[in-house]
Simulated scan of single mutants.
Amino acid sequence: MLRLLILIIALGAGGGAAWIATQQTATAPDPAPVAAPPEPAIEMTSVLVAEMDLARSGEVTAEALRWQDWPVEAVPPSAIERKAQPGGLREATGQYATRPILTGEPIGQHLLAPTPGSYLAAMLSPGKRAVAIDANTQSTAGGFILPNDRVDVLYTTERGNDAPELRSRTILKGVRVLAIDQSTDQTTANTVLGRTATLELTEAQAEVVTAAQSSGTLSLSLRPMVETPGEPSMDAMEAPKRIRVGRGTSIEDITLN
C-alpha cells in the first residue's frame, strides 16, 4: 500500500513538471527577426534623352527632348548631363540629328550638327580626318562592312618586272568606317556593295593611306565587334629601296619593295 502511494505521488509530480514545461514553451516569445542590411542607394543624375524617334538630318525640337533620371554609373561618356550642362536642352534645340535616334536614347554632341548637311563632320572625333578611299568592300568582306564598323587596311603592290609578284600587308588596324559610298547608316537589312569607303584617320594616317592608294591597291578587312576598338594603330610604310644594276654597257634602276 505504501509503495502504491509513493508511485502515485511520483507520477503526479512528473506530470506537473511536464505541464509547467509545456506552458513555459507555449508562452515564450519568438526571437526577434534579424533585419537585413539596407540596399545601397543608387546615385542618380539627369541626362538628355530623345522623347521621340528622330530621323537623320531631322531638326531637333524642344518637344523631341526631355531630361531623364539615369544611374550615374551607367551614364554614357558622350551624354549631355544636366548637372554639367544645365542649358543642354536649350542648346540642342534647333540642331540636326547626325543619324537616326531612338526614343529614350541619351543625346550626345556627336549626334547633333548645326546644319543638315554637316552630319559627317559632326561624326568625326576631335583631331581626326575623313578620308575616302577606293576599296572593294565586296571582295574583302562580302559587302558586310557597314558604317561604324572597325576594319584593317591592307595594302597590295606588285614586285618584280619579268614575273610580277603580288605582296599584301596590313598598314592600318582598328580604323573606324564613317561611310560606305554615300551611306552613313549603321543599321540596314541588306549588304552594302560599295566601292568607296570613308575612314576616320589621324593626319599622319591620312598621309600614309593617300600615298599607298597612289602606288597600290587598298582593301578592307572586317574586325570582330567583341574587340575593344581603342585607338587605331599604324604600321610604318617602308620607303622603296632603289638600287642601280649594271649589265655590260647598260645601267638599270631596280626598285625593291
Rank of each mutant, 00 (worst) to 15 (best):
residue 57 S to V: 06
residue 45 T to Q: 09
residue 75 V to P: 00
residue 207 E to G: 11
residue 70 W to L: 04
residue 200 E to S: 02
residue 139 S to L: 08
residue 76 P to S: 04
residue 184 T to D: 15
residue 44 M to L: 14
residue 237 M to F: 11
residue 11 L to Y: 01
residue 89 L to G: 05
residue 85 Q to V: 07
residue 192 V to A: 11
residue 185 D to A: 14
residue 204 A to S: 15
residue 229 P to K: 03
residue 114 P to V: 06
residue 100 P to T: 02
residue 83 K to E: 13
residue 208 V to D: 07
residue 68 Q to M: 09
residue 12 G to I: 05
residue 139 S to E: 12
residue 185 D to P: 10
residue 180 I to T: 06
residue 98 T to N: 09
residue 53 D to H: 06
residue 250 S to A: 11
residue 91 E to I: 10
residue 253 D to T: 13
residue 16 G to L: 15
residue 224 P to E: 10
residue 37 P to E: 12
residue 229 P to L: 03
residue 198 T to A: 07
residue 137 T to C: 14
residue 173 K to Q: 08
residue 178 L to S: 09
residue 31 P to R: 09
residue 189 A to N: 12
residue 41 A to I: 05
residue 28 A to N: 00
residue 159 R to N: 13
residue 221 S to F: 07
residue 152 D to A: 11
residue 81 E to Q: 08
residue 110 H to R: 15
residue 251 I to F: 15
residue 101 I to P: 00
residue 76 P to T: 11
residue 18 A to Q: 02
residue 219 S to E: 09
residue 87 G to C: 12
residue 236 A to D: 06
residue 29 P to G: 05
residue 12 G to L: 08
residue 131 V to H: 02
residue 243 I to D: 11
residue 243 I to F: 04
residue 104 G to W: 12
residue 166 L to Q: 07
residue 235 D to A: 09
residue 187 T to D: 10
residue 172 L to P: 00
residue 36 A to E: 10
residue 79 A to R: 05
residue 188 T to L: 08
residue 105 E to V: 11
residue 142 G to F: 04
residue 220 L to M: 03
residue 153 V to H: 00
residue 145 I to R: 06
residue 253 D to F: 09
residue 112 L to H: 03
residue 59 E to K: 14
residue 101 I to R: 01
residue 11 L to M: 10
residue 59 E to W: 04
residue 28 A to R: 02
residue 167 R to F: 04
residue 3 R to S: 13
residue 66 R to S: 07
residue 132 A to P: 00
residue 88 G to K: 00
residue 125 S to C: 05
residue 233 S to I: 09
residue 120 L to V: 11
residue 63 E to F: 01
residue 93 T to A: 14
residue 163 A to E: 14
residue 12 G to A: 13
residue 140 T to C: 14
residue 202 T to Q: 02
residue 177 V to M: 09
residue 218 L to R: 15
residue 197 A to Q: 04
residue 183 S to N: 11
residue 91 E to C: 01
residue 107 I to W: 12
residue 137 T to F: 06
residue 176 R to S: 05
residue 228 T to S: 14
residue 160 G to L: 12
residue 257 N to V: 04
